[in-house]
Design a protein around this nucleic acid. Sequence first.
DNA 1: AAATCGATATCGTAG
DNA 2: CTACGATGTCGATTT
Lengths: 246, 246
Amino acid sequence: MELPEALEKIMSGVNSGKTIIVVGKMHAQYVGRSTSRLTEGDRVLIIKNDRSVLLHRPTGYEPVNWQPPGVVINAQITVEGLELECSRKSPPEVLRIVITEVYSAEAYRLIDKGEFTIHAREEDMKLAIINSPDMIEPGLKILETERRVGDEYIDILAVDSDGQLVVIEIKRRRGTRQDVEQVIHYASMVEKELGKKTRKILVAPSISREAASLAMALKVEYKCFSPRLAYEILSKKKGLERFMKG
Amino acid sequence: MELPEALEKIMSGVNSGKTIIVVGKMHAQYVGRSTSRLTEGDRVLIIKNDRSVLLHRPTGYEPVNWQPPGVVINAQITVEGLELECSRKSPPEVLRIVITEVYSAEAYRLIDKGEFTIHAREEDMKLAIINSPDMIEPGLKILETERRVGDEYIDILAVDSDGQLVVIEIKRRRGTRQDVEQVIHYASMVEKELGKKTRKILVAPSISREAASLAMALKVEYKCFSPRLAYEILSKKKGLERFMKG
DNA sequence: AAATCGATATCGTAG
DNA sequence: CTACGATGTCGATTT
């Protein structure tokens, strides 16, 4: 496709809120929060309905260059080629893309009212524990979730069968040394605020060797629990509730 | 475009290492590290040369669903539509995409040998400080960078004009409370290992109010320095070197 | 394979 | 706007 035709497609698409896909040979430059330069090669450029801009190489998950939604787009033909300037004010940053050859340029009116639901998040692990605290430890009673201490939130504050406070930190991924430090930090704030000693439990699907030895040293307990198991427990419970209603 | 024609384009493209772009109405399901469900809507599906899979909604930076490079792709026409199954073994996960309507489906042989260079990273800030330590504080001398303590790395270990050890932590973005805690943590490990007191400095372009007050309380000093300034300093130095050579 | 850390991280949420 | 934590974070590097 010729550059002027592509320019017309891009700008009329941008102005009417379409999603534009350009495949071609391009190079790019970014100046803003960082600074980068990309020399010529075959790329896929996507300008979405919300005027976010993605420049993809033919490999990998991440765009090599991009701009977030709501960017201001200017385009013109120069001696270099079809030059797109994508800029915004806060933070001040500019992505300049020069297209030298166009293999394809199309604009689509895309309407997406689909719903996206995700399960097996940290939130689901929390819900499963609230529903079945005995899973963590027999006799455990939940006192509060998301208790605010300073500017931070403690995942779960509970009390064990001996009446001692328990600070619980949940991670959906393998527990790290820093996660152990986080629960220690939360517990120390609770202890300072309430003037009571606490037990500390890190709940995660697995734990790194370093985190395990640090936990041992700092008297942080570890309880194995996975997001997948949490999802299954919640599904079962939901299924049961449906059955009870029905 | 009819579904069988799209199926043919997709599979022959996948088998010959092309990049495939499909625009159409689709829904998707993911099971693996998490679990998600996306109901029908207009989407852009990209299968790259390296068999990474991206499913984009018409808004936002991130793909709503994806698979990393090297995934195994199977496709067939079912009663539901054109069904793509993208799976891998480690970790075990499957992304199932059902295309019910195809607006466009094309395969491109994309060759990208371009170079990507980035500046104004945290690494550049470190290099600038190594080149001009006086910028941080007159008389500062760099002892080590990336010093390993346990399993972690300290950005810069230096000594001030009074001969006292200085632990420096660099951030390219606004400093947070956690960054202050990190430099404290590193310093305590150094103090334990070397048996000497240290000064602690957080270098960042700005600092949050909470981080500033925590830094004050914990005797962590803050020095303002930005990635952009680091890049300018390094560019100037490089220009000077070129001038000296030429 | 495991662990750590940086990133133009992005994104949502709360205040 | 700022601040903070979650993410199927990804990706690079080192052991």
